[in-house]
Amino acid sequence: MINRGNELKLQLANPGILERYIKTLSPWFCGAFISSLIIGLWFAIFNSPPDYLQGETVRIMYVHVPSAWMALFIYSSMAVASLIGLIYGHLVAFIYAKSVAPIGAVFTLICLVTGSLWGKPMWGTWWVWDARLTSMFILLFIYLGFIIVSKSFNDPVKGDKISSIFALIGFINIPIIKFSVDIWTTLHQPATISKLDTPSIHTDMLIPLLIMFTSFVFLFLYIFSIRFFSELNLRRYVTYTLSSK
């Protein structure tokens, strides 16, 4: 006997049915992204206070911090998907990891660039090799490495396996990024929000930050849906050409 929950799980494990779900949701992701981006930017630029020390420069944070969160979140989800793929051999898990990697790489790049733009007026330098900045820079290269590895095999089954192992090795960097500011002395400040204590940020600044984060999540989901379709069709094409030989 299959209950409804299990039935849905089975359906989602089937690429074709999942594709239909995502196809229906895709325009909603896009709409949610655009509307939350407009609200978020309005809050971030016009309706939030300047910082007592940083002044108006604090507004860079509303792009910098959500993209850093996205970069870490996307990589962690990729590692989980790779693990599921390696153990259970689910095609959807491999396709997920492969299609979100470039999105994560771009968020990492946005994080590094906006951080650098903030660093010059605030710290007095564009870049230093402290533990947080360096480990984030390494994350960019891990993303790029994953993309290259996942594209360098003609046989998709082999490519999935190797790139999943690569993703798991790269995951070791994620806790290093997160805790770098606590373990070592760094120029980068320690965590403001994701810590056990209450967040050290005023609510008027926390609201735009969270709206911008929501907006980035929907942007991620929207781009993922597009990439999921193309990756799935690519697999179908490869399978078709292999079987017709």
């Binding site: 206070p49 300047p50 910082d51 007592y52 020390l53 944070m61 320690p190 403001t192 050290s200 600044m205």
Partner: peptide, 8 residues
């Protein structure tokens, strides 16, 4: 910079 963000 420290981890505190607040309006003036």
């Amino acid at each position: 910079h420290d981890e505190n963000y607040m309006p003036p």
